[in-house]
């Protein structure tokens, strides 16, 4: 497994680029692709209505459309399913419904990337949220408050 680039961009993965698609037979195709690391791949697929058969197994076309939450830059990709950080606006937003259980930083506090800033509860599990960058907390939601997807958990001023 090629692990190059993992973690470098917070787990972000580019979709491989399709170079060539050749029809070999009825519904049988050969594709040539190049990955983000410049690796060239050649593989055959067969399309069977809404099912695509590949060397990795069967996929349904809808399996591929399922919203793959585009990994935003977060402090630790371990929590990228919980929050996303918008670098330009400097806001950390909830991706799921959650409740703030505890905050360990307050506005004005200096933070280092990876510092724990809060504990949140979602799906009856507790998770820690960490600072996405070095900088300062501008605003942070109070413990006990609930957040809906898209709500702001904290505003952070990153040092550039």
């Amino acid at each position: 497994m090629d692990m190059g680039g993992l973690g470098r961009r917070g787990g972000e993965q580019d979709t491989p680029r399709l170079l060539r698609l050749r029809k070999l037979g009825e519904r049988l195709y050969e594709a040539e692709l190049v990955t983000e690391h410049g690796e060239r791949l050649r593989l055959q697929v067969r399309i069977d209505n809404d099912v695509i058969e590949t060397p990795f197994g069967r996929y349904h076309l809808s399996n591929l459309d399922i919203s793959e939450h585009k990994p935003a830059q977060t402090s630790s990709s371990g929590e990228s399913w919980l929050v996303e950080f918008d670098e330009h606006e400097g806001v950390l937003r909830a991706k799921l419904s959650m409740k703030i259980v505890e905050t360990v930083k307050k506005p004005g506090d200096k933070i280092k990337k990876g510092d724990k800033i809060a504990t949140i509860e979602t799906m009856k599990m507790l998770n820690d949220i960490h600072a996405p960058c070095d900088g300062e907390i501008v605003e942070i939601t109070q413990p006990g408050q609930g957040l809906s997807p898209g709500n702001i958990l904290a505003r952070i001023k990153c040092e550039t």
């Binding site: 993992l6 979709t15 399709l18 692709l33 593989l43 399309i47 990795f56 591929l64 793959e68």
Partner: peptide, 25 residues
């Protein structure tokens, strides 16, 4: 991490082929 990376890698490959096939075939 690496398991999810591989899941995405495979889906990414299939997706880019399917996107082309989808319209054509």
């Amino acid at each position: 991490h690496e398991l999810v990376y591989e899941i995405r890698r495979r889906r990414g490959i299939i997706k880019s082929i399917a996107a082309k096939l989808n319209t054509d075939i």
